[in-house]
Design a protein around this nucleic acid. Structure first.
Lengths: 223, 223
DNA sequence: TAGATTGTTAATCGATTAACAATC
DNA sequence: TAGATTGTTAATCGATTAACAATC
């Protein structure tokens, strides 16, 4: 445990932090967790960058957006930096999450262990299909989407994941917004429109494959 | 059908096309497909950009990397542009894909309809677990990972998707590379090292949620 | 101390946007 | 024709990298 004071843990102005930086922050966190699991206590910006194909300067610059976490001549203490990044990302707590759409993908996401490991717990699942409402999947009883707003409020859910067909995604998103949700991860292959105070991120599995297909067709290395 | 000649469909130098441009190309394609489904035949760069929150200039610039697809005063013909983008992305054909890891996530991906819609067909599934080898999931018989190299060659598989635990991901990646695969989408929450001639893309579902969590904690709109 | 490594500034590099002549 | 919209150049903006004094 260090007694050295860390000047800032809150970003000077979070609005000025590029999305790419926040993305790398998650990768740093993941890598640090692997390092700790392997018994490493200290890592330099160069060492961390090497494992992720980033320059040492980039690692230091990214972290410097949020405070002074390193020790000149030594590097970063893995456990300390993990704590700092979790705090920055907001995963130093458990977030209750709602899952909407209990098809193939929704069911799998419901059972995905990786979420809880990073501080996300799916506490409610919804579908419109009457044959699905009431069944228990991965320990969670599927509820009718009509009860969504009430359930979201009662369980203090602030994040939602959409795994419904493309045609239903916007309506579901509107429901979530109406229920007062703060952020949405959308797995439906469609762009949804949201008010500016609700964060969103689209994940399209087919698009991921398309990116690789492009590289292969153009005989590219990944950059 | 137009008889106007399109100067280039191959990029002048694919290595110089930023990853972000290729990503947006996939979004343009998806949006155009929705537009065609809704009966639209023609769309301007401004119209397309508006639906995706991009500027008109960005849409035109992105497309101009690959050729002259638009008609001054008119815009882009949706069906034509769809064909052109599919060709650029390499999805004007069907790609046979191998799925490795038939846990929760692997099973769901196996059943995901969105892949085939974009030209990807999962034709082989692998696992190490003897209780899984032999079972049929979504019409595909799970095979032992020991037969991977032979199967990949026989079925001319060039793309692989990894959905195994983090600890097994690198070994599986090495196997795929040994089998001569050209590209990998890695769903395991770990960075894998690959030779430069193999394309890769990591998808970490927990990281997607972390990005939203950051925004919410910092009260940010999505940019 | 000497060696290692940070945080930060300045220089470089790349990507986005604005503007407009050319075109339909 | 007048109006709309492209493709492309130049200007702007932002992100990455190199370099180095400060620090342990």
């Amino acid at each position: 445990m260090s007694h050295r004071k860390q000047k800032r843990v809150e970003p000077p102005d979070a609005g000025s932090v590029p999305r790419a930086v926040v993305n790398r922050l998650s990768l740093y966190l993941r890598e640090l967790q692997h390092l700790v699991a392997d018994g490493t206590h200290t890592i330099s910006s160069g060492g961390l960058g090497e494992r992720l194909n980033f320059t040492d300067a980039q690692v230091r610059k990214d972290l410097a957006y949020f405070g002074h976490f390193g020790y000149p001549g030594i590097g970063y203490r893995a456990d300390e930096l993990i704590g700092a990044i979790r705090k920055i990302l907001g995963t130093d707590r458990v977030w209750p999450v709602a899952m909407i759409g209990i098809g193939n993908l929704g069911r799998a996401l419901l059972g995905y262990k990786g979420f809880s490991r990073q501080g996300f717990e799916i506490v409610a699942a919804f579908d419109t299909d009457p044959t699905k409402v009431g069944i228990v999947v991965e320990g969670i009883q599927v509820r009718d989407i009509a009860t969504l707003a009430d359930d979201v409020r009662q369980q203090h859910i602030r994040l939602g994941m959409i795994a419904v067909p493309a045609t239903a995604a916007q309506a579901v998103a509107d429901l979530l917004v109406g229920a007062g949700i703060d952020g949405i991860v959308n797995f439906a292959p469609v762009t949804i429109a949201l008010p500016p105070h609700v964060s969103q991120l689209g994940v399209d599995l087919a698009i991921e494959l398309e990116q690789i297909s492009f590289d292969v067709v153009n005989r590219l290395r990944t950059r």
